[in-house]
Amino acid sequence: MAALRQENAQLEAACEQARQEAECAGAHAEQLRQELARHAEAVRPVPVAAHTPPQPEPSAAQSPRPEPEAEQPPQPEPEAPQPAQPDWKPQTRLEHLSVELMNWFDDMMGA
């Protein structure tokens, strides 16, 4: 009987310790959620390079196209200009990690 009482006391102590640890973990998790919410509000969106959508070609009724004068040999098209890089620089650790991840993806894709 004494052994059962001792075992019961040990189990109650272990349960109480587990409750306290769970409360501490819950409080810590709530603190992290609040901190994350503050950081999410403080982080500004990353500017994206301006993209102008392609303009629709005017229809034949709107503006007639001039007739080509003479057959000209096809000229090689100039290389498409690379999109302008924004003047944005990573400032936070998350932005630095994002840039590193995007560079890693570019390397994997062979860009």
Rank of each mutant, 00 (worst) to 15 (best):
C24M: 11
A13N: 08
T52M: 12
H39A: 11
E30N: 01
R44E: 14
H39I: 12
V48N: 06
P45K: 04
C15R: 10
V43M: 11
A50F: 06
V46R: 09
H39F: 09
L32P: 00
L11V: 03
Q34V: 02
A22F: 13
S59N: 10
T52N: 12
E57M: 10
P47E: 09
A27C: 07
A42E: 15
A50G: 01
A14E: 15
P64I: 01
Q17F: 13
Q31N: 05
C24A: 11
A29V: 00
V48C: 10
R38S: 12
H51Y: 08
L11C: 03
V43K: 06
T52A: 14
L36K: 10
R38P: 01
A27Q: 10
V43Y: 09
Q31A: 14
Q62W: 06
Q55K: 14
Q17L: 13
H51T: 03
A18W: 15
P45H: 04
Q34L: 06
A40K: 14
Q20S: 02
P54R: 00
P64K: 01
E57W: 05
E16S: 07
A50N: 04
Q31Y: 12
A42S: 11
R33Y: 03
Q17S: 15
A50K: 04
A37D: 12
A40H: 14
V43D: 06
E23S: 13
H51D: 02
A50R: 07
Q17M: 12
Q62R: 06
P54D: 02
P45W: 03
